[in-house]
Design a protein around this nucleic acid. Structure first.
Lengths: 142, 142
DNA sequence: TTAACTGTAACTGATATCATTACAGTATGA
DNA sequence: TCATACTGTAATGATATCAGTTACAGTTAA
C-alpha cells in the first residue's frame, strides 16, 4: 500500500488534535516525519476532496474543514490509495486457448475488487476521531 | 501486493483443473504467463507448506496434494504475502515529544493489522475449487 | 549415460517509492 | 512596495522492489 494514505491520516489526525486545527506543511512534515513537499502534495489532494482548506502566503497553511468524527479512513483510502490492493502484475492471458489461462485474469480481478471493497468497509468504520482516541489511549497506557 | 500470491493461486487452480493434477514448471509458466524459474520459486514455497509434491528428474514436476475445496486463498495469502498490506514506510517517531507524532506509528500498525485480518478472513472464504468454478462460469458466459 | 526435470542463487532492466531541490504564484505586514 | 512566509507543482536523484532471465548443481527416469 502507498504510504500517502498513512501521511493523509496522520496529517488529519494531527490537525484534529491541534486546538485551532491549523498547521503549515513544515509543522506537519516534522510531525509525520517526511519532507514538506511531500506533505504539500498529499494535502493538495485532501483540499481538492474537501477535507481541508489551504491558505497560501505568509501565515498560511492547512486547516481542517471536515468534522473528525465524520471523516473515515475509508474516505481517505478511496481518495489516496484506491486500487492499491491489486498487484500491478496479473497472471493469465485472455487470448490463450486454455480455459484457466484465458479467464484467470478476469477472475482474479474480481476477487481483488471484492477484497478491496471489504477493506474499504473496514476502514469506513474508523473515523479520524477514533484514531485520535486510540492515540490518547496509547499515551495514557505508556 | 506481491504477485507471487496470484501466481500461486493460478498454479494451484491449474493443477486442480488438470485431470491428473500434474504439471511441470514449463507448463505452469506458459499458463500463468511468466518464466519457469519464477514458477519454481513459488512452487517451492507451496511444497514446503504442503500443498503440492514435487518430483525432480525426468518426467518430474508438480502434483497437487491438497484437496482443492480445503485450500483457501487465505491459506495461500498467509504463506505468500502476509504483511503486504502494510506500507513499508510508516509515519511518526516514538521518540518525539508530541502525543500524536510519538504514538501514530503504533496506532497505524494496529489498524493495518486488523485490516489484514479482515482481508484474510475474506480470502478464507474462497477455496481453490471456488476459483476454478468461477473460471468455468466465465467460459460458459463468454 | 543422457535427457528432462527441480532448487536456488545471481544478475539485469524496469518500475515504484521517497527525499530533495527548484521555482512560480500568493498573501501578509512593515 | 518590498521582504517574508507560505502553497502548488514539476523535476531530479537515490534507493528499493519487482519481474525476467541466465546459470548451474542436484536428481530421477529411461
Amino acid at each position: 500500500m502507498n504510504s500517502e494514505f498513512t501521511i493523509a491520516v496522520h496529517s488529519l489526525v494531527y490537525l484534529a488534535y491541534l486546538p485551532d486545527g491549523m498547521a503549515s506543511s513544515e509543522m506537519l512534515a516534522d510531525n509525520v516525519g517526511t519532507h514538506s513537499a511531500r506533505i504539500r502534495k498529499v494535502m493538495s489532494i485532501l483540499r481538492k476532496s474537501g477535507y481541508v482548506a489551504t491558505r497560501e502566503g505568509a501565515g498560511g497553511g492547512y486547516r481542517l474543514t471536515a468534522e473528525p468524527d465524520k471523516v473515515t479512513l475509508g474516505d481517505i483510502y478511496r481518495v489516496m490509495a484506491l486500487g492499491s490492493l491489486m498487484p500491478s502484475w496479473c497472471s493469465g492471458n485472455p487470448d490463450m486457448d486454455c480455459v484457466v489461462g484465458s479467464n484467470m485474469k478476469e477472475v482474479m480481478f474480481g476477487i481483488f475488487c471484492t477484497a478491496e471493497k471489504h477493506l474499504e468497509s473496514h476502514f469506513d468504520a474508523i473515523t479520524i476521531r477514533d484514531v485520535l482516541g486510540q492515540i490518547r489511549e496509547c499515551s495514557d497506557c505508556g
